[in-house]
Design a protein around this nucleic acid. Structure first.
Lengths: 238, 238, 238, 238
DNA sequence: GATGAATGAGCATTCATTCAT
DNA sequence: GATGAATGAATGCTCATTCAT
């Protein structure tokens, strides 16, 4: 994370990044509520007073963190759109980006998010105003954008339920990320990403499903046979 | 929840259910850390001492709750297997069950789960021993069971990545549930469930995908052709 | 202790003894404040309610215990007076009795006493009314009695400070007992008792100090010599 | 105690001393368990938070106190060794120091010690590691040092049981201190100290005991006799 | 006589936050 | 700008004791 947040700037920005970095690691390791501002300050090498000079409240550390992470996620996504134009390849790249960022620093990002639900939201009615929700919404755009461009290019069908596919996409990635973590299997990240994206892609792509090769070829065989029968019939004298 | 936990029993079981009920609602409304044992006791109409006589620690309220919910989920799943044998129909029913239980009582179950991640798990290394994880694992069986039986009956292909599909299934349901909540759209629960299950089902079912547009048009063409052939044949002198 | 407190009687006395026995062991092992009435009841195999039926308050368990122990101490002391008449031998026997009772059951009696200071006495002004003080006073009689009888028989000097010697006697035994405990040396109990009593005995016994044999015989020699010189001088014609 | 701990220092040391002072008095008056940190903080004029900023736990107040007291005891003892060289005089001075420190501030030091046994030690097996034990051991050196130097100078016999005498010394002082307290007799402190040390000194000193009454009267007789003889000799014609 | 569920005041300790220096 | 001592409300939990059954 250091490398991400600490891109050298002036002194105060440096400090801010150090504090955020410390908070990031500690929240991830122990959870939001288990970490005191005292400990964060100590780990960041500043006094408690200074910490509160930079971030007016503990929960602002959390928002700061989330913003930084979503910023990174979004930045990477933009690069994906710039560099890749095939829709399927874009989805793979977005998924890989998501799961990679979420899993970096010991695979603890999801912990942050989950911690935050309790911090930021003190009643479900408030969820709509939460920082997390706002970020989530604005980031979810990434999936929608890829899919809609795919439609325009004719790669993606128009009659899909985009909202359901989005939920499958992000939900699947979150669970998938957890699975990888639990099996210490981050080296299989790419295969897993492919396995997750594949079913979604099949259900949204315009072209025939190459996944039903058996049926397809059966159908082909039938058609062929039928064709020859028909041809023969047509040749018959009436 | 009340209706679920309070099936009349003896006095102490009644009490236990009342406390669990109060805890359930308050955790859901305000989050685990935001609710004190004091408040839970008051809401349950007992003294704090009594609360701790029933549940030795605050986090045991949480485990108690989770266990109760997973028990219900599992029980319902068993009914699904008993009453339905078609695999696709089973997946729909399991998904509906999941999303229904998760959403009941103000749609806050997911909140509980997420709260719990921070309670139960104070370092990621511990996740494997957590109550939540244990329950999750033992419940996830439900998806695997449906799929494997589907394979035995020849309804489901054998070459699927069951783990990835499972993550998509539960992750998608979790996000889907959140979406429904955010749009106050629980009345569209069934459609949404169908939309979520559909892509997964398409990618695992054995038969050709009738949805695949290419095949569909091919099939249409074949049918048309066949029709005309048949017509001609009928005109043949016998 | 069981054997001491449980001399079979009727049912309720039996119960009372069982509770006292449990309390004794637990107070000794963990200290008065570290043991709850719940735990004592459980160890004694009765309900909490029953415990309070027998002993109206927790601190009465303590008084009960102390009374039982002092009763035993006193009883043993009476046997000493009955069976032994030599004062030095009596002091040795009393000391041995004291240190033995104090050390029995894992050498934890002193723990009880010390615990009790804090229980019973909530201000130093109250010490005079405490059960412990009362028992202490009435038991301290044992030392005074031995010494005073020794005086009457001429074995003990009349000009001693009996109060100071008593403090040395009991204080020395308490510390001595602790020393034995700390060195796991209860097998050397008798030697230690002798070493403790000896200095006190020397300072109170009437007869010449056999410890200063050198000086004593020197004095005898001088006296003898002087006597003969004097006798000779008296015989001289003036 | 105020005078001892508050020797003006900087602000925080001052505060620390104030808290320790409050704790000292309250523990002494009411006992460790009967005093809450709330009350101590109030008496010290600080908030509870501050109290815990200075002393991380209640029991550290106790250790802090004990350390301060033993430090004073040890310091005074060193002065005794510096200023006095006669062994008997040293023992008297050490005893007076001990009983004075123990009795200061309402004669409650022993209360502290005894309280502490229960705080620090939750099973007898732990006694050896307790702060109190450690302090006790390191302070007991004071007696041993005096006695061993006495041996080197030939004032003290070599065949004594130093451990037994040490137990009599400290045990006697503890009980003696209690006696003085119970009789409101601290003005007789010095006589009492002499009475306590005397028996011990007699049993360890090298020279004959001039106190032995028998010898004394014999000596008186001899002196008388010698006087008369001398008188007669003076009358002799030279 | 025995039980054990219920009580609620009390406890040690934590923590985000402030503010004088 | 930085500090860190000070705060005090709040927290999870314990426990001796009571009393309806």
């Amino acid at each position: 994370m250091s490398s991400t947040l600490n891109n050298t700037l002036n002194r105060t920005e440096q400090r801010e990044a150090e504090i955020l970095d410390a908070a990031m690691n500690m929240f991830a390791e122990e959870g939001y509520h288990a970490v005191s501002t005292r400990k964060i300050a100590k780990r960041a090498g500043v006094s408690e007073g200074t910490l509160f000079n930079y971030f007016g409240a503990k929960h602002e550390l959390m928002s700061g963190l989330l913003r930084a992470i979503y910023a990174e996620l979004t930045e990477n996504a933009q690069a994906v759109f710039r560099d890749i134009s095939d829709t399927r390849a874009r989805l793979d790249a977005l998924a890989l980006n998501h799961i990679t960022v979420m899993s970096r620093d010991n695979a603890l990002f999801m912990r942050l998010i989950q911690s935050y639900m309790n911090v930021d939201i003190s009643g479900y009615t408030e969820i709509r105003q939460s920082v997390l929700h706002e970020l989530n919404i604005s980031y979810a755009w990434v999936f929608d954008f890829a899919v809609k461009e795919g439609m325009q290019r004719g790669e993606v069908r128009e009659d899909i339920n985009i909202s359901a596919l989005r939920d499958l996409f992000f939900g699947g990635l979150e669970y998938g990320s957890r699975s990888l973590f639990l099996h210490d299997a981050f080296d299989q990240c790419e295969e897993r990403v492919a396995s997750l994206v594949d079913p979604l892609w099949q259900s949204m792509r315009r072209d025939a499903d190459p996944r039903a090769p058996e049926n397809a070829s059966k159908l082909d065989a039938v058609c062929e046979r039928l064709e020859s029968v028909a041809t023969q019939l047509e040749k018959l004298p009436t």
